[in-house]
């Protein structure tokens, strides 16, 4: 059984947190980079944030919201966090961008700064570098939708002391959710999901149910 300590989420209209029950409309803001700066989401400037793909930018925002929601802020706690990215499409868009750019350039040289995003684990690797997460870093895509395999993986990491906490990043076309979890006795018992957007609540519910099954 795992315990959800904090939840950060983001869709095209709003961002928010789980325990803190906050929700901020950002639909009319200029960019995610400006949003991060103006809403004081990051502790310091993130190098190259403007050049990150939108998916990675959103992942950073969901992650920082989840960390604050969980109250994990000091560097020693951050070092003990492992990362799991769950995403059905992997990095196919990055792969297309990299190879098309290489062809457009005359099939002579490719760009290293595009190549490094051709792994499905690259977005969480960027997050690990910025936030200082030193636990395991994995991309998982299970064939079924139950989340059982993903939660079993999380529990394997926690029970074998690979990490004290795991940050689960759910990456979808329409939203991103980041959940901080640790081994616990009662998954989400103090978590009221009714105020969350429907698809985010559905994710948290699936994790809770999978945790109860494993």
């Amino acid at each position: 059984m795992i315990d959800i300590l904090g939840l950060g989420w983001l869709n095209d209209q709003c961002y928010g947190q789980g325990r803190n029950r906050s929700q901020v409309d950002y639909a009319n803001r200029v960019s995610l980079e400006r949003l991060g700066f103006e809403d004081n989401l990051f502790r310091e400037t993130i190098k190259n944030f403007g050049r990150f793909e939108a998916l990675t930018q959103k992942l950073f925002i969901a992650t920082t919201l989840a960390l604050r929601d969980a109250g994990l802020t000091n560097s020693e706690q951050l070092h003990e966090i492992g990362l799991l990215a769950i995403n059905k499409t992997g990095c196919i868009a990055s792969n297309q961008r990299f190879f098309q750019d290489y062809l457009d350039g005359g099939r002579k040289l490719s760009r290293a700064n595009l190549f490094i995003y051709t792994l499905p684990s690259s977005p969480i690797a960027e997050a690990a570098i910025y936030f200082g997460f030193r636990g395991p870093l994995l991309y998982i895509d299970a064939m079924d939708e139950s989340m059982n395999s993903e939660i079993q993986t999380v529990e394997n990491l926690l029970q074998t002391a690979q990490a004290k906490f795991v940050l689960i990043n759910l990456i979808d076309e329409f939203y991103q959710a980041a959940l901080i979890v640790r081994i616990g006795k009662a998954a989400t018992e103090h978590f009221n999901m009714s105020f969350l957007p429907e698809n985010i609540a559905e994710c948290a519910k699936k994790i809770k149910e999978a945790s109860e099954r494993t």
Binding site: P136, L138, I140, S149, T153
Partner: peptide, 15 residues
């Protein structure tokens, strides 16, 4: 049974 992709760069199969 269950089936998953696991990818962690050049540690994928070790993981």
């Amino acid at each position: 049974g269950k089936a998953s992709v696991v990818s962690s760069a050049c540690t994928s199969s070790t993981a």
